[in-house]
C-alpha cells in the first residue's frame, strides 16, 4: 500500500484504501496514550506550523498534541496576531513561511481553497484544518475511525448527517468519506440549510428527521452556528431544537446500537439534548481522542514518504 499524497487538502483525494491505511496507522497510535512516556522521537527536529486564520481551540490543540507526541517542534500562529491583519496577501504569507523552512503547515482559513493556494507556494506539506464551507478532512477521517472502531466496518452502514448542511465543511468531508467507504449517507436539515445540489453527490436527502434516523447506525449532528441563529435560516433556536434537535425520544427511531457523534463544540439543548450527549450512545469524547491519533498518523505518513514538496503543489 503506497501513500502517495504530498498534502491533505480534501477527502476527495483519498481512495477507500488510503482511508483505511490512515485509520490503521492511527489505531496503532492509540497505544501511545496508555504509556508511561507518551512521546516518540519520530519527527525530532521537524517543524510544524499551525496557521489558524480562524479561531479554533479544539482542532489546533489536537494538531499540537499530535505533533508534540511525535517530537516535532510546534509553532502556533493565528490570523489575528499575524501580519494578515495588516493586509498581507495569502501568497506573501506563504512565501514568508516558506523561508522559515517548515516541514508541515497546518492551515485553517475562512475561505474555501486557501490551503490549496498555500500548498502551491509554501514549500512544505499542507494539511487542511478546515477551509470555509469546503472541507475538513482530518475531522472526516476521525469520524470514519470512530465509526470503524465501533462497528468494525463502514461498508453498508446507514449514516445520517443532521443539521446545518449548507454551511458545514464537516458535512462535506463526512459525506465524501463515508460514501467512498461504502456507507449510505442521508442528509437531513431544514429546507433553508439543505441545498438540493447535494443530491448530485448521491446523498439521500430529507427534511424529516424521523426518516433520516430510521434504521441509522450513525447519527452525526452538526453545530448550529450561533451567528446563524439570528438570521433567517430558521425562526428560533427553540423551533430548530423541536424539529431537528436530538433527544432520547427521537433517538429511539434509530437502531438500538446506533452511535451519536458531534464535531463540537456542542450547543446543549439546541441540536443535542444533554441526555444524548452524555448518554451511552454518544461517542463524542472518543472522537476527540481519535482526532489526535489521526493527525499524528497523517503527519507521520506525509513526512515518511521521503521527498518534500518544493514550490509546486
Amino acid at each position: 500500500m503506497k501513500f502517495n499524497h504530498r498534502h491533505v487538502l480534501s477527502m476527495e483525494q483519498f481512495s477507500a484504501a488510503d482511508i483505511h491505511a490512515v485509520l490503521d496507522t492511527a489505531e496503532n497510535f492509540l497505544e501511545l496514550n496508555s504509556r508511561e512516556i507518551k512521546k516518540v522521537p519520530t519527527l525530532r527536529g521537524r517543524a510544524v506550523i499551525n496557521f489558524f486564520f480562524e479561531p479554533s481551540t479544539r482542532t489546533r490543540t489536537s494538531f499540537e498534541i499530535a505533533g508534540k507526541r511525535l517530537s516535532a517542534d510546534m509553532l502556533n500562529l493565528s490570523g489575528s496576531s499575524s501580519s494578515v491583519v495588516k493586509g498581507e496577501s495569502l501568497v506573501d504569507t506563504a512565501l514568508t513561511l516558506r523561508s522559515m523552512n517548515p516541514d508541515i503547515v497546518v492551515v485553517r482559513h475562512s475561505h474555501a481553497g486557501a490551503p490549496h493556494l498555500m500548498a502551491r507556494h509554501v514549500g512544505a506539506h499542507v494539511i487542511n484544518a478546515g477551509d470555509g464551507q469546503h472541507q475538513h478532512p482530518t475531522q472526516g477521517l476521525l469520524d470514519l475511525m470512530t465509526v470503524r472502531q465501533r462497528f468494525g466496518q463502514i461498508e453498508g452502514l446507514k449514516v445520517a448527517i443532521v443539521g446545518d448542511i449548507l454551511h458545514s465543511r464537516v458535512a462535506r468531508s463526512d459525506l465524501i468519506g463515508f460514501q467512498k467507504c461504502g456507507a449510505e449517507v442521508w442528509l437531513c436539515g431544514p429546507p433553508t440549510l439543505l441545498p438540493p445540489e447535494f443530491a448530485r453527490f448521491g446523498a439521500r436527502m430529507t427534511y424529516n428527521l424521523e426518516e433520516a434516523l430510521t434504521g441509522a447506525h450513525v447519527i452525526i449532528l452538526l453545530r448550529v452556528q450561533a451567528e446563524r441563529m439570528n438570521s433567517a435560516f430558521f425562526p428560533t433556536a427553540r423551533e430548530y431544537s423541536q424539529r431537528y434537535g436530538l433527544n432520547s425520544e427521537k433517538l429511539k427511531w434509530a437502531r438500538k446500537d446506533a452511535v451519536v457523534m458531534h464535531p463540537g463544540p456542542m450547543n446543549r439543548g439546541v441540536e443535542i439534548d444533554p441526555s444524548v450527549a452524555d448518554g451511552a450512545h454518544s461517542l463524542i469524547l472518543r472522537q476527540v481522542e481519535n482526532g489526535v491519533s489521526v493527525r499524528a498518523a497523517l503527519m507521520m505518513m506525509l513526512l515518511g514518504g521521503g521527498d518534500r514538496p518544493r514550490g509546486d503543489a
Binding site: K2, T25, N28, T42, M300, M301, G304, G305
Partner: peptide
C-alpha cells in the same frame, strides 16, 4: 525516518 522511508508501515 528523516531520510525518507518509502511509506513506513506501522504495526
Amino acid at each position: 525516518f528523516a531520510n525518507g522511508l518509502s511509506n513506513p508501515v506501522m504495526g
